[in-house]
Write a protein that binds this DNA or RNA. Structure first.
Lengths: 242, 242
DNA sequence: CGATCAGTTGAGAATGGTCAAATTCGGTGG
DNA sequence: CCACCGAATTTGACCATTCTCAACTGATCG
């Protein structure tokens, strides 16, 4: 028996997948490819016939503005689909780039649609995952629009921690994190210098340490309170299965 | 023959719907309901079995933060689906509220899924519309994260003008707009006072007038340049049908 | 004619940005 | 092991954008 892939872990946390479905997902994830840091997986404005399932490493999608500044839309971690929407809609409106060395499975549009129509529980699980992604983007809008720099950074880190834990990365004390302060700034709509200042003050307050590729949650309770973090939007499955 | 509904206009602009499909959409939109301004169509945290197709009037979806501030996620205009995702995913994570007097058709989840499976072109059209909504949220993230107050207001107004024109509302000179400055502020992540100042300066510069429920685009070219507005993300259909 | 609500304006404060200059850190080659 | 390089981080000083508070105007409605 192969080790469960991150996607499998994520979906299994909410759905009781049958043996047949597990075997199907394993087939879907068979075709591995690796990418080097900085490599583009999907380019702006291109139509695509394949998407990727991220197995190892981190990626991000972003838009570059004419003035050269960059806004990162979402950070992708193992178990996430990359470019699924681009595939379904045959139009990608942003770039997806490898943040670290990446291992991803390339999947054809046709294979995904076939799986969706043949395995209803898989379809439900993928819809759930897509709804979760959507909710994260909505939360990102709230972060950028109505939360202070400190609140939004803490909120983002807590969200990331929750996502990573679901695929078995990191623990209650923190997680390894390849994000630079510049990347974090481009996620949060801030300057890297201001991000640095906020991180220092959080460290000095004993709240969280974001250094040398490692994030330590030094006081989870106080962090959750500070950012008024409510993970409900990440756990919709629980709600709907009541 | 009934006048085409806004949804029909929107979809017809990109897809050559057959007579059967048009008749089906008319059946889907048969069940009219009206809502008063301020009325909630969908509440946070509720599961729903029905969605709405907006026929007349404006609505918006928002999230309220514990500190009382509000972030509007998107503004909905005639021809838009309300709560489609909530229905598909059986979990709504934000409120939808009538902004003006509204006329909407309530549609059952079962009827939508049936239509989607029986009419492939309708399914493609709905996917296209959903992708467009998604792209607008992404652009909203860019607005909030990396554009100045002036740029983001202009960008938003131009987007709104383009959306409205697609359903036959407004023209090249402008459109009627029920948004108050406070609502616009909650869309753009700004204070209403700052919105007021920016609108004044735009008016004094002869760029756009946003007054008394009317938006006049006084100098479209300069506006598009100022906000580096590229409507490509609203016209994905054109790209993919090349 | 109040009352209410949206819009206006000013003044001062705060949050976050820009510029410039260290400093640290992880390699890499000698 | 050491010197060095480039990238990431850190810090300070100053500046700009945007916010908050408070007061005032103007329209609308019973």
């Amino acid at each position: 028996m192969i080790l469960p892939s991150p996607l499998m872990r994520k979906l299994s946390a909410r759905f009781a997948l049958s043996y047949l479905e597990i075997a199907m997902i394993e087939r879907l994830e068979k075709n591995h490819r690796t990418f080097a840091p900085g490599q583009q997986l999907i380019h702006e404005g291109q139509g695509h016939l394949s998407a990727f399932i991220l197995r190892k490493g981190w990626a991000f999608s972003s838009k570059i503005l004419p003035n050269g500044s960059r806004q990162i839309i979402e950070i992708q971690i193992p178990g996430d689909f990359l470019g699924l929407r681009s595939v379904l809609f045959n139009a990608s409106d942003h770039n997806i780039e490898a943040l670290t060395q990446i291992q991803a499975s390339e999947v054809l549009l046709s294979d995904v649609s076939e799986a969706l129509s043949q395995y209803p529980l898989f379809a439900a699980a993928i819809l759930w995952a897509a709804a979760r992604d959507e909710a994260m983007v909505v939360e990102h809008v709230v972060d950028l629009g109505r939360r202070s720099a400190e609140e939004r950074i803490v909120h983002f880190v807590l969200e990331l921690a929750a996502r990573l834990r679901l695929v078995g990365i990191g623990d209650d004390t923190g997680f390894d994190c390849p994000l630079t302060q510049q990347l974090l700034a481009d996620v949060m709509g801030l300057s890297s210098i201001h991000v640095n200042r906020i991180l220092r003050s959080l460290r000095e307050e004993g709240l969280l340490t974001f250094q040398k590729g490692r994030v330590s949650l030094d006081d989870s309770d106080r962090l959750k309170c500070l950012a008024s973090f409510d993970p409900a939007y990440l756990d919709q499955g629980k709600i709907s299965s009541r």
